[in-house]
């Protein structure tokens, strides 16, 4: 019962944030951009002129380890952020420990 109540609180906060974000983004974008026409959202696409292949914007099979590059890139960004914060912190802690030892 206690857990259910907590889940409801989390979902309520989630819903409030979704509502605020929806209104904010929609208000901000309605003045600047147009709504995507229905044919671009999964419906029938218009044929490309001169028989060209339509631009691909969905899933694309990756060969040659493309996913590894993406994976390493994302881990790399997180690692850099972690290193930028934890390394100076560790040095600071060691310095303080060194002063206390003396």
């Amino acid at each position: 019962m206690k857990i259910l109540g907590r889940i409801l609180i989390i979902l309520a906060v989630f819903t409030i944030v979704i509502g605020v974000a929806y209104v904010a983004i929609n208000t901000g974008s309605s003045s600047s951009s147009a709504t995507v026409p229905a044919f671009e959202r999964g419906g029938e696409r218009f044929p490309a002129p001169d028989g060209e292949r339509p631009e691909f914007d969905g899933e694309r099979p990756e060969f040659g380890g493309g996913w590894i590059v993406g994976f390493i890139k994302n881990i790399g960004i997180i690692a850099v952020v972690v290193a930028l914060i934890t390394i100076p912190k560790t040095f600071k802690r060691r310095k303080i420990a060194g002063f206390n030892a003396q």
Partner: peptide, 21 residues
């Protein structure tokens, strides 16, 4: 659909990566 949602999706995902770090 709205063009703005895609850019918000990309922007928030990139920001999430930094925040997760």
């Amino acid at each position: 659909g709205n063009f703005a949602w895609r850019s918000w999706h990309d922007l928030s995902a990139n920001l999430f990566l930094i925040l997760l770090g």
